[in-house]
Structures are given as structure tokens and as C-alpha cells.
Design a protein around this nucleic acid. Structure first.
Lengths: 211, 211
DNA sequence: CGCACTTTTGATGACCATCAATGGGAGTGG
DNA sequence: CCACTCCCATTGATGGTCATCAAAAGTGCG
């Protein structure tokens, strides 16, 4: 009934317009959802971390490209039986509605970032978002000094943030120079002071989102 | 059980953080959903046209500001009975999931616009969006010469498109000078050639989204 | 008619994209 | 072990697009 599928970094999981015959959730790794214009400009519209859901019941065709950013393990269900289950257990349908509403909120928060924030604010928002998710995984509050793995290339970050990879690199360098962050190798970052960075994100001071 | 409420242009319908004790759908008029940063920068995250749904079951607090752009009539249900109804009629829950998925797709399409499109492409995308919705209301295909009412100030358009009102005005003037559009008074526009404008939007040539 | 509001148009400059070159790890093979 | 390569990241130089500041023109209404 359920089965595990794994993908290598860079490998497509599903392509826009493809028939989707499964739904699933991320067990380990990071996957990205992207849209592109005909001339190649691309925008990431979702970042799938462990526990995130991929796919949509009652939708035949994939609306975006999903690509593995790291090695990814998915826990998959075939779509038909899943939809069957949804009809028989209303609790599942409600849960799915909840999750979709959360995704909608996240997408709209990102609209604010893409439409109105400066490059610096975008980087700060992104890093604090990762820090919050990291903390949430361990049932902790984010704060103080934190290390986060970002598992994305500069280019992928740029696609998420609506910037170029050069601008991402420059902003990260600036934050490093100012001592707000430290680099650990290429793919990990230490936030020396979570609150300081959160203030740079442009959002309301508290920045907290209630459950 | 259900009742109609109306709002004057500029009047807030609900404010971020407010307790939401109703859900409803737009009968006539146009309402906007917006988010703001502390320093006042504003981004519209949703445009509610007739038949659109406002509010979210199982969410106590409003996540955004909703404001009437024109005179708006809402058909409202009290939230508690509505949630009751949702539990008892699974069909309703499914319908709501459908609608939420549609909103999510729309939000993500807008992320692509906000992150990657030029000012000109944003205007073209916006006008063709309105034209499509207008056509859909009358169960027609968009195409050829079409008149659309935009019911929004330049500033509201700017907030939707992630631009300034001056840039919106300039791009509209340019399109007019090129004969792609004509102005009818201040709040209506004639697209002299829908297809021509659709090509300017930067999306795939066909631009069609399947049901 | 006069006032408030919206829109248009102009002048200037900032921020970020673009183009280009350099730097640095990780992996491979001589 | 050390070239050598590939990929990714950094840094620099320059320019374009759009934001900002400012003023004028158009529209609607009491």
C-alpha cells in the first residue's frame, strides 16, 4: 500500500503536466517546487522539508516541477486508494484541508517577501524560516546561537528568493562580515544571534506565528 | 442562518488578528486581501471577485486584512454552524478543499509574477487575468477585443503587482501609446487584442489552464 | 467654484541584474 | 602526492529597471 521511493540530488520527482499517480510525504532530504517562464526564468514556489506533503488528491496533473535538492526519501501512496480513504475517513480530509491552508498561508507570506522586501530582508527571512523549522522539528523555540544546514545551492536560494545567485552570495558575505552569521563549510551557517537576524527580516518584531 | 452584509469602498471587512466569527462569499463588488510590513510596505495577497470565498473554517484569527475596494455585498454564514455543516456533509469539505487548492495555485502563479516578471509583464498578466475571469463569468472564451472594469486604484494595482503606483501608471500609458489598450474613463480598459496582450505576459504561449 | 483625490509625467538615483573573472573544495587519474 | 578538472561560490565592474521625490493635470463632488 505504501512504499518508499528515493531520489538523488538534482533528480526530478515529477514534472509539470505529468500525470500524478501518487501522493506522498518527505521522510528525509529536501525537495523543491518550481515554476518557469518560457525563457527559462524560474521561481521556486515551495520548499519541501521532512514531514511536508507532496501531491494533491483530486488533481490529475502536476502543476509544478518537483526536484530533489538533496538525496530525498518519499513515503508514497497510490493516489486512487488514497482518495478512497479520504472519502471514507472524514478526519483525513479535514487534516488535508488544514495542511493546504497552512501552505496557502506560507505562499502568501512569501508573496509579501517577493513583492516588497529588499535583498537583505529576503536573506534574513529565509534563514530565520529555516531556523524556525529546524527548531520546530526538535520541539524547541528558536533563539540565540543556532546552526542550520541549508542544503541548497546559492542558485536554488536565489530561485526561492526571487534574486540572482550573485546577489545572494553578496548579501551572505555582508552578513558574515557584520558578524550576524558564520559559515561552516559551504552548506551550513551559524546564526550568531537569532533575534538579531529576525529583526532584519522586516516582519513584525515578535515574528511569532501562533499554532 | 445566512445573511447579507455590505461594505462601502475603503471599508475594512476584517483585520489581521481579529477574531473571525463568520465565513462568506462575495456576491457583488471587489475586495482585497493584504499584508503589510511594520514600516507600511503593503502587498496584496488575494483579490476577491464575485463568487470568491472569504474566511477559513477551523481558523480562529484572520491572517490578513480584508478591505472592500468597491461597494461589496457578502453572503455570510456564522462560522460555528458552518463548521458543523462541514462535518456532517463531507461533500462540502471536499468542495472547500478544491477551492483552497485553487487559491494555492493562484498564489503560486503570483509568486512567479512577483519574483521574476518585469513591470510590463506584470501589467499584461494582470489585465489578461481580469479578462479571463470576466469571460469565465459569462461562460465565454477570452479573445479579441474586450472591455474590462478594473475597479482598483493605481495604488491597489501596484500593491497587487509588487510595484509603485507611478510604475503602474507609466506602463499603462506605454501600452496605450502602443495601441494595445484603450482607456475608457479611469476605471475601465479596452484590450484591443487579447492574444497580443497575453503574449506580453511572459507565460507560455497558450496561456491556458485546464480545469 | 474650490477642494480633495487620483492619475500622469518628469528628473534623479539606488538597488539589483548582468557580464566577467577569480577563488576554492572535492573527486579523479597520472 | 600532485596536477587537473568540474562545480560552486565569491568578488568586481557596469548598466538598466524601477523606486523615489516632485509637480502638474485631470476628475468628481459638495
Amino acid at each position: 500500500m505504501k512504499l518508499y521511493r528515493s531520489f538523488e540530488p538534482g533528480q526530478p520527482i515529477i514534472w509539470e503536466g505529468d500525470r500524478m499517480d501518487f501522493v506522498g510525504s518527505v521522510v528525509t532530504g529536501v525537495a523543491t517546487l518550481t515554476q518557469t517562464l518560457e525563457d527559462g526564468r524560474t521561481q521556486m514556489v515551495g520548499l519541501l522539508l521532512p514531514s511536508d506533503f507532496l501531491g494533491r488528491p483530486s488533481r490529475d496533473l502536476a502543476p509544478y516541477n518537483a526536484v530533489a535538492a538533496t538525496r530525498v526519501v518519499l513515503c508514497c501512496f497510490r493516489r486512487k486508494p488514497f482518495e478512497q480513504m479520504m472519502r471514507s475517513t472524514p478526519h483525513l480530509a479535514h487534516r488535508l484541508l488544514e495542511m493546504t491552508l497552512d501552505e496557502l498561508d506560507a505562499a502568501r507570506e512569501w508573496m509579501l517577501l517577493l513583492g516588497r522586501k529588499t535583498a537583505r530582508e529576503r536573506i534574513a527571512s529565509f534563514l530565520t524560516l529555516l531556523a524556525r523549522r529546524e527548531a520546530a522539528l526538535h520541539k524547541r523555540q528558536p533563539g540565540g546561537r543556532m546552526q542550520i544546514d541549508l542544503a541548497l545551492t546559492r542558485e536554488a536560494m536565489a530561485d526561492y528568493l526571487g534574486l540572482t545567485l550573485e546577489t545572494v552570495s553578496r548579501q551572505i558575505s555582508t552578513l558574515k562580515r557584520e558578524g550576524v552569521i558564520e559559515l561552516v563549510g559551504k552548506r551550513a551557517i551559524i546564526l550568531t544571534d537569532f533575534e538579531r537576524l529576525a529583526e532584519e527580516s522586516g516582519d513584525d518584531a515578535d515574528g511569532g506565528y501562533p499554532d
